[in-house]
Computed example of a mutant assay.
Amino acid sequence: MTVTIYHNPACGTSRNTLDLIRHAGIEPVVIEYLKAPPSKEDLATMIADAGLTVRQAIREKGTPYEELGLADPTLTDDQLLDAMITTPVLINRPLVVTDMGTRLCRPSEVVLDILPADAFTSAFVKEDGEAVLDAEGKRIV
């Protein structure tokens, strides 16, 4: 299975998601999107494939969202996508693309929806101590 994660190593949710993918025995393609943002077209496709609107895919917390005037409801999706590509910290993370679908993995256990359930055979606990999978690899949350 091919898995790509648009990752920010400074983000706990992104780290937990990456760890869950690896716990499934999959070594994903890791794209540090702050260094190498996706193209505008790829970002638009991922957002649509994840079932999100462009506004739902924008990160507000810890970004220049307000300063850039992005709360303006008259801005088009095209304008918002331009802002996200120009200032990639505005891209909410982590976005994960697999053969089973695309998701914005917030919380990190959302990634379980697009990974094979039979790939998990043991417990998984997030960085903060929250258990996600039981000893048999079954989803707890």
Score class of each variant (00 low, 15 high):
residue 2 T to S: 15
residue 3 V to C: 03
residue 8 N to C: 10
residue 9 P to D: 10
residue 9 P to E: 08
residue 9 P to A: 06
residue 9 P to S: 03
residue 10 A to N: 15
residue 10 A to L: 12
residue 13 T to G: 02
residue 14 S to E: 03
residue 14 S to T: 06
residue 14 S to Y: 04
residue 19 D to E: 14
residue 19 D to Q: 13
residue 20 L to P: 02
residue 23 H to R: 03
residue 24 A to P: 04
residue 25 G to W: 07
residue 25 G to N: 05
residue 26 I to T: 13
residue 27 E to Y: 05
residue 27 E to M: 07
residue 29 V to Q: 11
residue 30 V to K: 06
residue 30 V to G: 05
residue 30 V to L: 06
residue 31 I to C: 11
residue 32 E to T: 11
residue 33 Y to S: 15
residue 33 Y to I: 12
residue 34 L to C: 05
residue 36 A to I: 13
residue 36 A to D: 13
residue 36 A to S: 13
residue 36 A to V: 13
residue 36 A to L: 15
residue 36 A to Q: 12
residue 39 S to C: 06
residue 40 K to L: 09
residue 43 L to C: 07
residue 44 A to F: 07
residue 45 T to H: 15
residue 45 T to E: 12
residue 48 A to K: 13
residue 53 T to L: 10
residue 55 R to L: 14
residue 57 A to E: 15
residue 58 I to R: 11
residue 59 R to V: 07
residue 60 E to N: 11
residue 61 K to T: 11
residue 62 G to T: 09
residue 63 T to A: 10
residue 65 Y to A: 13
residue 66 E to W: 14
residue 67 E to F: 02
residue 68 L to H: 02
residue 69 G to Y: 00
residue 70 L to N: 03
residue 71 A to C: 08
residue 71 A to E: 15
residue 72 D to P: 03
residue 74 T to D: 03
residue 78 D to F: 02
residue 79 Q to R: 03
residue 79 Q to I: 06
residue 79 Q to A: 08
residue 81 L to H: 00
residue 83 A to P: 05
residue 84 M to R: 05
residue 86 T to V: 05
residue 89 V to N: 08
residue 92 N to Q: 10
residue 92 N to K: 09
residue 93 R to P: 15
residue 93 R to D: 14
residue 93 R to M: 13
residue 94 P to S: 04
residue 95 L to H: 13
residue 95 L to N: 08
residue 96 V to M: 08
residue 96 V to P: 09
residue 96 V to W: 11
residue 97 V to W: 15
residue 97 V to Y: 14
residue 99 D to K: 11
residue 100 M to L: 15
residue 101 G to A: 09
residue 101 G to M: 08
residue 102 T to P: 11
residue 102 T to H: 10
residue 104 L to H: 11
residue 104 L to V: 14
residue 105 C to P: 06
residue 105 C to F: 10
residue 105 C to L: 04
residue 107 P to V: 12
residue 110 V to P: 01
residue 111 V to S: 04
residue 112 L to K: 00
residue 113 D to N: 13
residue 113 D to H: 13
residue 113 D to W: 14
residue 115 L to Y: 12
residue 115 L to P: 03
residue 116 P to W: 02
residue 116 P to F: 07
residue 116 P to H: 01
residue 117 A to D: 00
residue 117 A to F: 09
residue 118 D to F: 10
residue 119 A to G: 07
residue 120 F to P: 00
residue 121 T to L: 01
residue 122 S to N: 03
residue 128 D to F: 03
residue 133 L to D: 01
residue 134 D to R: 01
residue 135 A to L: 01
residue 135 A to I: 07
residue 135 A to T: 04
residue 135 A to H: 01
residue 136 E to Y: 07
residue 137 G to Q: 00
residue 137 G to K: 00
residue 137 G to L: 04
residue 138 K to F: 12
residue 141 V to G: 02
residue 141 V to F: 06
residue 141 V to R: 01
